[in-house]
Amino acid sequence: MLKKLKKFLMGITKIFGKKKEIKLGLYGPPNAGKTSLANRVCKDWLGEEIEMGSASAIPHETREIQIRDQIKIKKKGKELSFNLVDTPGIATKIDYEDFLKFKMNKKDAKERAKQATKGVIDAIKWLDDMDAVVVVLDSTVNPYSQVNITIIGNLAARDIPVLIVGNKIDLKKSDIKKIESAFPQYKVVGVSATKGKNVDKFYDALLKVVK
């Protein structure tokens, strides 16, 4: 019932109101490569110098929502204009001691953990505002994690279009088929965001999924 009402109201907005900007969210567990993919999109469509944020091997590098407005993708006569929302990685546990392994001092590790917990809360709160979501997974890691299932389950319950990206296909352990069998009802595209491998297919799939 709510979905129908939402659809009806969106239809009215389209007819009488100003065209709403699509919010495209990047969601996923920490260290999957959401910011690397965001940076790739920005470089490809906004220019070489523009980046969304810093990517790092240390988990929870992105601890605040980052938004890049008015990205326009044009491909094969199709066009998609959206605001890209890069979100902090969603996790069920955060231990500052994990950051100490990356030679971070205790004070910084504690601060990072504190910011990371807030980041997870913000990412969840923003789910309601998304018009479409790209779920970014590390294709070298087992996809059957509860965080992945919870994120995708929530998007399905909210009727939000989803595209799954299996990142890091340049690595030996990458297994896109495993992601496909874990989430057979969704389109899965394998990419390497840092190397720019297969990103064309990602844009093609994005144009199909987000209408």
């Binding site: 969603i90 546990k93 917990t117 789910l127």
Partner: peptide, 25 residues
Amino acid sequence: KPSEETRLIEKTMQEVTKEFKGIEL
């Protein structure tokens, strides 16, 4: 429900301390 699962994660994050590091679910 999916929304309750995310609420559980949210609540977990609100309650993370030195002693309570979160949950496995």
